[in-house]
Write a protein that binds this DNA or RNA. Structure first.
Lengths: 335, 335
DNA sequence: AACCTAGAGCGAAACGTTTCGCGATGGAGG
DNA sequence: CCTCCATCGCGAAACGTTTCGCTCTAGGTT
């Protein structure tokens, strides 16, 4: 492998001049050509480790997500990865299998790897630890969920309005008893989505039945159980919205098992994965998060911070969701 | 950040002794204790970059897959990542968005990052380039598809037997006209899955109609079109097997749109994702690849190579698939 | 004509490790 | 008692960069 030394020898310049060239410093135009050619001929590539030893930069970003099997996160990661690559940054992607213990461990691992910055989805929300990273000038971008009381950049979907609009659509279809299958109280997103539900009821002056707010746990089983519970009620809801992908799956399974007719017996709006809306019958209405936007925004915000631009820190980007109403939602009719 | 120097000063030993300790060399037991404590106190962490500069090891593995949005791959990646982490290796994960051009570019990127080894799913199958890596003693493990004419370690599912068994199951249900929705001719996996179809027909002495072998392209649209084509035939198949996940989705969409009754009008076996088998009605029969096995095997094979053990190179691990027959498959009845 | 300044290139120290070869010690074997 | 060898620790060079401060030149400003 050719080193900077070889290039220096080949061209007759000093090592420092080559280094200058490599880093975009002032070098005479004609000499630039000479060096460029030499690099070509020798196949010289900068040794990141050696450079990093001096600069304390690894040109590597750590990405930490709850699960690599969750397409919502991996889609975003894929976008981020591409954006960062354009700037010469590599990414180390870790998942913590939705395990609070592991989250800390994997985060530690990333830090050990000397990443220059971190983009993460935090469940545990270890305030002190993340603060200590920020103090060390390691930029951290929070994805999908904020951490209360922590001053940190954050990019997420507008969860409140997402559920607001979904429930609003149901109200416009004349539904009066609308169920919502929420996530765990501990999850930031779950709280926001619940708020949207509450607010739209207020705005439309609609009575709210606490029993119709189901506290799930963002798992398939949770969604399954929720529908079963709703169906055992004396006064069943005529419509229901599910607030994440896994529970949507579970809800559909329950609907199948209970032979509930959609949308005649129940209207339903799911969450996150547009693809499943196509394979179930009837086509499922869906709230879709702006994954592309989230990825792009997170990447460019991180780049900004890496360049030392801490303008408007801490920034929070709350990006608009989209709602697709399909045949799984119908006008409410009294039987 | 404390360096090895600080530890040396603190303990009174020389730098080289500390280094020796760090790398498991011979150090007096009592001194080991002293050093251990010093490291604790000072919070010393080895600087990978400095170490790597000497050893030419980054302790980083590159993983390259076609798409981060394909749960089959990400599940495997997640397992690999965990296994490698146990050995202190980090992973840089790239996807090439199913784009042959990008594959090479991303691979270059990984090489530029000085990864110690590579685990990849190759579509383009750039024989020369991968050979050049192997020549440079950079271990490469191929996942999911082999590259013809390249001597390289490889871990994949037993695709031939996967489709053999699926079609065999249909034959056992008395089906005579069985359709198969294959992948593109260029894909190694597609060829194997086709072979299984052919072989089981031979073994059971069943007539084979070439028209029932549909050459798809592993996309949702491809699966959709395949079912439509089959349904326009004079002599429709009574059962069909789909040979990847995306086409399975497409096939189900078509079945819904055409109002085909499963399994009365058509029995169907899908591929890869056990989860969708639960949310469609009736429950879908599925061929499942041993993702866990694939990941574990790939990781441990790579570790072996990294340690310089090139025993039985090139090794090919062909892992058994599992088949789950559900209600989407029924006994064939003449109408 | 004298003075400045910006541009261009150079030399050397520094980053934090690993590793090679050497010296010291001490116990085992003859 | 001498030799030998294994164990333990040390010093110094090396890995491939970046960067600071220096010199030199050429052109522009007074």
């Amino acid at each position: 492998m050719a080193t900077i030394k070889d290039v220096a020898k080949y061209t007759g310049f000093s090592i420092s001049t080559i280094s200058k060239y490599m880093n975009g410093g002032n070098v005479l135009k004609e000499n630039r050509e000479i060096i460029k050619e030499a690099i070509e001929v020798l196949g010289y590539k900068k040794n990141q480790m050696a450079a990093g030893l001096k600069t304390n930069k690894t040109m590597t970003i750590g990405i930490l997500i709850p699960s690599l099997e969750n397409i919502f996160f991996t889609t975003i990661v894929s976008i981020i990865e591409d954006e960062l690559l354009k700037e010469g940054y590599g990414t180390i992607i870790c998942d913590f299998k939705e395990d609070h213990q592991l989250e800390r461990k994997k985060l530690d691992f990333l830090i050990d790897k000397n990443v220059d910055g971190i983009i993460m989805v935090s469940y545990a929300g270890d305030k002190e630890y993340i603060q200590s990273l920020l103090d060390k000038e390691t930029p951290v971008i929070l994805l999908d969920r904020m951490i209360k009381g922590l001053e940190c950049d954050c990019v997420l979907a507008d969860n409140l309005n997402a559920s607001y609009q979904a429930v609003e659509a149901l109200i416009n279809h004349k539904h009066k008893r609308i169920g919502i299958i929420c996530g765990p109280e501990s999850a930031y997103t779950a709280g926001e989505r619940r708020k949207g539900y509450v607010r739209v009821h207020e705005d439309y002056d609609l009575d709210m039945d606490e029993d119709l707010i189901y506290n799930g746990d963002y798992t398939v089983e949770g969604g399954y159980k929720a529908i079963n519970d709703f169906w055992q009620m004396d006064k069943r809801p005529s419509a229901v919205m599910v607030t994440n992908y896994e529970m949507t799956i579970g809800a559909i399974m329950a609907i199948n098992d209970l032979d509930i007719k959609v949308p005649d017996d129940l209207s339903i709006i799911g969450f996150d994965n547009i693809q499943i809306s196509k394979i179930v019958r009837p086509p499922l209405s869906i709230v879709e998060q702006p994954m592309n936007d989230i990825g792009m925004t997170a990447a460019s915000l991180l780049m900004k911070r890496l360049k030392g631009d801490y303008q408007s820190f801490p920034a929070t980007y709350r990006l608009k969701t989209e709602i697709f109403i399909k045949e799984s939602v119908a006008k409410y009719r009294e039987d």
